[in-house]
Simulated scan of single mutants.
Amino acid sequence: MTFSPESDHDAAAIEERVEETIAENDVVLFMKGNRLMPQCGYSKRAVQLISTHVSEFETVDVLPALPQYREALSDRSDWETIPQTFVDGEFVGGSDVLAELEERGELESTLSTE
Rank of each mutant, 00 (worst) to 15 (best):
A23S: 11
R17F: 13
Q48G: 13
R45Q: 14
V18H: 04
Q68P: 04
E24C: 06
E24V: 08
I14R: 04
R70Q: 15
L63N: 02
E114Q: 10
R76Q: 09
V60N: 08
Q84Y: 05
Q39Y: 00
S77V: 03
G94V: 13
S112R: 13
E56Y: 03
S74M: 14
E24A: 15
I22M: 05
R104K: 15
A99L: 14
F86L: 04
E15Y: 05
L73Q: 02
M31F: 00
V27T: 03
M31S: 00
V87L: 07
R76V: 07
L107T: 05
V87I: 07
D8K: 13
E106W: 08
A46E: 01
I82K: 09
T52Q: 15
Q48W: 00
Q84G: 05
L107I: 05
Y69A: 05
F86T: 05
S43R: 11
V92W: 01
K44V: 02
L49E: 00
V47P: 03
M37L: 14
A23W: 01
T52M: 13
Y69R: 04
M37V: 13
R17S: 09
S43H: 08
T21A: 05
T85A: 08
E56G: 03
S7I: 03
E103V: 06
D26P: 06
F57H: 01
H53G: 02
